[in-house]
Design a protein around this nucleic acid. Structure first.
Lengths: 66, 66
DNA sequence: TCTTTTTGTAAAGTTTACTTTACTTTTGGT
DNA sequence: ACCAAAAGTAAAGTAAACTTTACAAAAAGA
């Protein structure tokens, strides 16, 4: 699964730590998701979408391998 | 987190087993998600959205407690 | 009513998400 | 060049997702 978290953060100009804070997870969790080290739960995906005011599908996209 | 999987299945007239098959998980996984026993991964949420041709947010909704 | 399909659950096991702590590297500002 | 903030990553532990097997209850169809 691909994600556009880095881009969305850049547009909003917030750090991984700030995003983590707004969503209620650790900074490492954000980093790990952003760098594709693991797949977040749907609750996290919905919270991110809410923070960025975008649809989940705009932030996370399936790949062939999924 | 709430979900409308049961309703979407009803509209498409497919069983839990058929949905599980289309998404590539076990029937118990679908049942457990549908009955709120656990939160699916974002990959699963995206696949369900694809099967139902709806947005993730139309199928899964955050609650206060999330 | 009888039979089949569907749904609900449970237990045990494996994998993966997520946490905390901690350290290194990179980036940006002055 | 120096300093501070941000990002990357790793290790160890806990929690939760997901699997398989299995069985019971409910719903649906004949």
């Amino acid at each position: 699964m691909k994600n556009r978290i880095k881009v969305e953060r850049a547009e909003k100009n917030i750090s991984q730590a700030e995003l983590a804070d707004q969503i209620g997870v650790s900074r490492q969790t954000i980093n790990s998701i952003e760098t594709g080290r693991y797949v977040p739960s749907t609750v996290l995906a919905l919270k991110m979408a809410r923070v960025f005011a975008k649809r989940v599908e705009e932030i996370f996209q399936l790949e062939e391998t999924d």
